[in-house]
Design a protein around this nucleic acid. Structure first.
Length: 235
DNA sequence: CACTAGATTGAT
DNA sequence: TCAATCTAGTGA
């Protein structure tokens, strides 16, 4: 009896050690929503299913704020059953169902109710399995290629098989989903532009705010803003 | 309770 | 340009 409990402790210690070497830490996520959003670009999302490792590089994100941002689920810090994860500690995953059939994944940042939507990623590891997931979860009969695997928030969730089961998951200590350091993205190669899919009539000025960030020149972004890119070239 | 619109995707 | 598909949010 005594012997067995010691073994359990040993296993836990070993797991913890492994986690600290690869997982981005609590401290990493504890930054305001703008700063975290931009720093997420170039990081690697790692998903483990049935001992298979899937991974992709984050190339596009958006910030959603809890104050006056009418487009945010946490608008005016309103907490509901759906958006609870946005108010949990930085590094908590917020997954929600949209249009009755798709999922989107966000990461809670510092700031009560603020979160970052992961909009697109570049497939890196386990591409075959990601293709299978997409093929299985989408209704399409067509065969997908690598280019359209993760170039949208719900496509990404399909490719990584992320749904409501993963809502409220802690990215700092989960063995099924976490972030790793990967590539440093220089500030001057980050495009700042308005967010996608917002109803201007309903959201007002917040629909125009530059709260979408993506890696300049990356081919796995969901939608490029050539005007914003041109503006950058001038500077 | 009835009704509406949505942080999307894929087909026409 | 439009349908799929369903729930949170709103208002009676």
């Amino acid at each position: 009896m005594k012997r067995r409990s010691l073994d359990v402790v040993a296993v836990q210690k070993k797991t913890k050690t492994n986690l600290t070497t690869s997982h981005l830490s609590d401290a990493y996520y504890d930054h305001d929503c703008f700063k975290l959003a931009r720093s997420l670009l170039g990081k690697k999302i790692v998903r483990k299913v049935n001992d298979r490792r899937l991974a992709c590089k984050i190339v596009e994100v958006e910030s959603y704020l809890a104050n006056d941002d009418k487009s945010s689920h946490s608008y005016q810090h309103k907490k509901t059953k759906r958006n609870e994860a946005m108010f949990m500690k930085p590094g908590t995953l917020y997954v929600y169902l949209t249009y009755g059939m798709y999922h989107c994944m966000n990461i809670s940042s510092k700031g009560d109710g603020d979160a970052v939507l992961i909009r697109a990623a570049e497939p890196m590891e386990g591409v075959d399995l990601m293709l299978q997931n997409r093929q299985r979860l989408s209704k399409s009969n067509k065969l997908f290629d690598k280019g359209v695997l993760c170039n949208g928030p719900s496509k990404l969730c399909q490719a990584l098989d992320i749904g409501l089961k993963q809502n409220k998951l802690n990215l700092c200590n989960s063995s099924e989903l976490w972030l790793e350091e990967f590539e440093r993205i220089p500030e001057d190669t980050i495009v700042h532009t308005k967010r996608i899919g917002l109803n201007v009539k309903r959201v007002g000025e917040w629909a125009m705010k530059p709260l979408r960030f993506y890696i300049l020149g990356n081919g796995f972004v969901s939608k490029k803003d050539y005007n914003a890119e041109k503006e950058m070239a001038v500077k």
